[in-house]
Simulated scan of single mutants.
Amino acid sequence: MRIFVFTLLVLLGAPSAGAQTVPDFGPEAAPPSAEDFSPLPEDLPEEGGQVVVEDTDPDEEKSRLDELFTDLAEVDTPKSAERIAREIQLIWMASGSDTVDVLMSRAGKAIQAEDHGLALDLLDAVVILKPSYAEGWNRRATVHYMREDFGKSLVDIERTLALEPRHWGALSGLAIIQRRLGFETEALTTFRRALEVNPGLENAAKAVETLEKDAEGTPA
């Protein structure tokens, strides 16, 4: 993926690409919106202070995630899929740092208020304080996307997937950017990968259906 991201960055840096207005790509691959970024629970401490990392067992957490992803791939009802996906997301959100949690919560509120500049300032601090925290990179990637800064978004997506290759949000984000830039074959592959780890992604499933029809020359 590193080579592909580098190629996209080169294209994004070209004068003609920077001047283009990218077309809408339809609801079947809808980009994230402010409503997707609920702040963290309100009972989190409001002040930062020292970075406090909880004593967690990385091997135990990884084992639990592996179990959940296995269950998610085999689930047979949407309700069960939603429950398992939510549990995975809660594990992803757990930074182990009170300060990072507060910054993430405030960033979520800033995104909802469409204050992307403030959100980026907060998320810059998150990735500096906790560079091993995949969700910090993923959330910053999404804010970059919302600002249509696809180059920076791709860099953060790559970092997210290096830390958590099964992050379906980052995979979906990558596929959306690939599609917007006209790399439909690559987008189809990436959407399929997202569905492998989380079969309950309705937007990704619709995107795959449309891209497959386009590849076959069949009207969507």
Rank of each mutant, 00 (worst) to 15 (best):
residue 3 I to T: 12
residue 3 I to H: 13
residue 5 V to E: 04
residue 6 F to E: 13
residue 6 F to A: 14
residue 8 L to V: 04
residue 8 L to C: 13
residue 9 L to Y: 01
residue 10 V to F: 10
residue 13 G to Q: 11
residue 13 G to W: 10
residue 20 Q to L: 14
residue 20 Q to H: 05
residue 21 T to D: 06
residue 21 T to M: 12
residue 23 P to Q: 14
residue 28 E to C: 09
residue 30 A to R: 13
residue 30 A to N: 06
residue 31 P to Y: 03
residue 35 E to N: 09
residue 36 D to C: 06
residue 38 S to H: 12
residue 40 L to A: 05
residue 42 E to P: 00
residue 48 G to A: 14
residue 48 G to R: 15
residue 50 Q to Y: 11
residue 54 E to R: 09
residue 55 D to T: 14
residue 57 D to C: 07
residue 59 D to A: 15
residue 66 D to N: 13
residue 72 L to H: 03
residue 76 D to R: 14
residue 82 E to C: 00
residue 88 I to M: 03
residue 89 Q to G: 12
residue 89 Q to E: 13
residue 90 L to W: 10
residue 90 L to G: 00
residue 92 W to F: 07
residue 92 W to V: 03
residue 97 S to W: 11
residue 97 S to P: 09
residue 102 V to F: 06
residue 106 R to P: 00
residue 106 R to A: 07
residue 108 G to R: 06
residue 109 K to I: 10
residue 110 A to M: 08
residue 111 I to D: 01
residue 113 A to T: 08
residue 113 A to R: 13
residue 115 D to S: 11
residue 115 D to Y: 09
residue 116 H to A: 10
residue 116 H to W: 15
residue 118 L to R: 15
residue 118 L to N: 11
residue 121 D to Y: 02
residue 121 D to I: 08
residue 122 L to Q: 04
residue 123 L to F: 08
residue 124 D to R: 10
residue 124 D to M: 01
residue 126 V to M: 05
residue 126 V to A: 05
residue 134 A to N: 09
residue 142 T to H: 09
residue 146 M to V: 05
residue 146 M to W: 04
residue 147 R to S: 07
residue 149 D to I: 09
residue 151 G to M: 01
residue 154 L to W: 04
residue 163 L to F: 10
residue 177 I to T: 08
residue 178 Q to Y: 08
residue 182 G to A: 12
residue 183 F to D: 02
residue 188 L to Y: 04
residue 189 T to R: 14
residue 191 F to I: 04
residue 191 F to M: 01
residue 194 A to R: 09
residue 194 A to F: 08
residue 196 E to S: 10
residue 196 E to A: 11
residue 198 N to E: 03
residue 204 A to F: 04
residue 211 L to I: 05
residue 213 K to Y: 08
residue 214 D to Y: 06
residue 214 D to L: 15
residue 215 A to P: 01
residue 216 E to Y: 09
residue 218 T to K: 15
residue 219 P to T: 13
residue 220 A to C: 07
